[in-house]
Design a protein around this nucleic acid. Sequence first.
DNA 1: ATCGCTTAG
DNA 2: GTCCACTAAGCGATT
Length: 630
Amino acid sequence: MEARADAHIPRPETVEHVLVDTEEALAAWVAEGLEAGVVAVDTETDGLTPMRANLVGISLATRPGRACYIPLAHIDPSTPKEGAGGLDFGDGAPPPRQVPLARALAILKPLLEHPGVLKVGHNIKFDWQMFAKHGVTVAPIDDTMLRSYVIGGGRHGHGMDELAQRHLGVTTISFDEVTGTGKNRITFDRVPLDKATAYAAEDADITLRLWHVLRHDVLADRMVTVYETIERPLVPVVARMEMEGVLVDRQVLKELSNDFAKRLVELEAEIHVLAGRTFNVGSPKQLGEILFDEMKLSGGKKSAKTGAWSTDSSVLEELADLGIPICQKVMDWRQFAKLKSTYTDTLGEQINPGTGRVHTSFALAATSTGRLSSTDPNLQNIPIRTEEGRKIRRAFVAAPGNRIMSVDYSQIELRIVAEMAGIPALQQAFRDGIDIHAMTASQVFNVPLDQMTSEIRRRAKAINFGIIYGISSFGLSRQLGISAGEAGAFIKAYFERFPELQAYMEKTKAEAARDGYVRTLLGRKCWIQGIQEKGARKAYAERQAINAPIQGTAADIIKLAMIKLPGALAEAGLNARMLLQVHDELLFEVPDAEVEATSALVRQVMEGAADIGIPLVAEAGVGLSWAEAH
DNA sequence: ATCGCTTAG
DNA sequence: GTCCACTAAGCGATT
């Protein structure tokens, strides 16, 4: 099935990859696209982040083997680079003949916006954004990367080069081959037009050919509903969200950086005194040698891989609890070093000079469970758990006249477990709206609710989390700091109280072993690598198999809510903008006067995004910053 | 490039 | 007997 010579779309008999550099030729391609009803589109730019990149050229494919490249902003390769020094006028040959960008977009717009012509891209979110920046709203769309993702999420990658090889047996021209690598790399606008045409037209051609194959494969794999109701409609929603960006207050970050720098200097000096000599506190290797070779502390563990002393937080915490002062200092140092290097020093540099806001990129096909991920910068792991870290959220602010609103699902993964595993006791608890951790604690440890202690509740909460992670006595014992035997007894008690859960877990593992994948409630496939193996690898795969349907169903549900929200807000005449998604939370910027109406509507849409049986609950918080809203 | 560690849900 | 209780991304040190 994988590397078959494809039965549905033969290899093109002729390959025409042509350069388009006149308006007449471009108009003819547009006519051809309108006639075809399906075109593949690809944009070439001078950068990877759409909010900073400039459009350099566009390629179109109208049938397999027939594609063109329309250069728009190419310059002569000998033109001196910006900022390279020297006089920047008069050097280099004049630019090659090209259709003026505005003219080209005007000619292409009727095709790209035509409701009867499907525009296919590979990761079309990027291209959609490039066109949106120039006033073109591409629709309807299709995406070969996302088609591959719904079929093979967790089993293989979804890059175009990889898919071309696997599905078409074609080795594509690599980007590196065209632009060079390292410090010799040139931006695409300097690539000579013959090379640029060969590369860019091929990309559109391959995308169209992949579309023919993957359209069939998604259908044959019965993944059409997931693709058409979740992945595809999410593209313009996430595209707009990224372009909106979030307002970040540089001054707040600057002050925090200064504060953290001061603390780091102090802590470093104290650590060196306690160590008896100077060393690089940021080097785990040197720290391990100080603690376990020189200070001869006990309780050291060597990592299996490199044989180096482990100095992670669990090790340091144990030693700190024994009253070893250097360990607490190192933990504090690490916290500030992390906050400064990853957040306060870096986020300010990510503010886009054009918009004054920070635009993350959400990857739509990066995880094995259906979750999004966030990069450049990652805005899904902004600190919240410690007081110092949480201060960073003060820098994420609303524009004047607006508020930040955070709306998150309450206990969504446990609700999903209760539903998928069919656990009546848990389902009833959620219907009654009672404290779920206290309730499970009461059931598992035989403690009446009115005699519940925070310690017992804490243990039950840890077990509830453990269930979601594909519980093991080893993992739970580490989490709770108890023996594996005790942890095993807790798990046994839990299964006795909720026997449906154990049955569900066994069934899920068996399915994964039989099929190689598991499914979410909405039908998404999550492939599980290593489930056919033995021992620890199999156990690991089994825990993934337990977790994936739970995490993946939550991902499906919030995606459905995101898809519904723009229309629901518009229909209600509300002007809130969705800014971020953090797995079970959506962040909005809301006009002051619309806070109440928006809060009610967003909660309603999120709670009604999917009917999983038991009710979903969403809770909203509002403030001038993300810190206040949460 | 990879490791070790830390941040989030 | 097991690097791993699940999913991610990024930084500095090290190779």
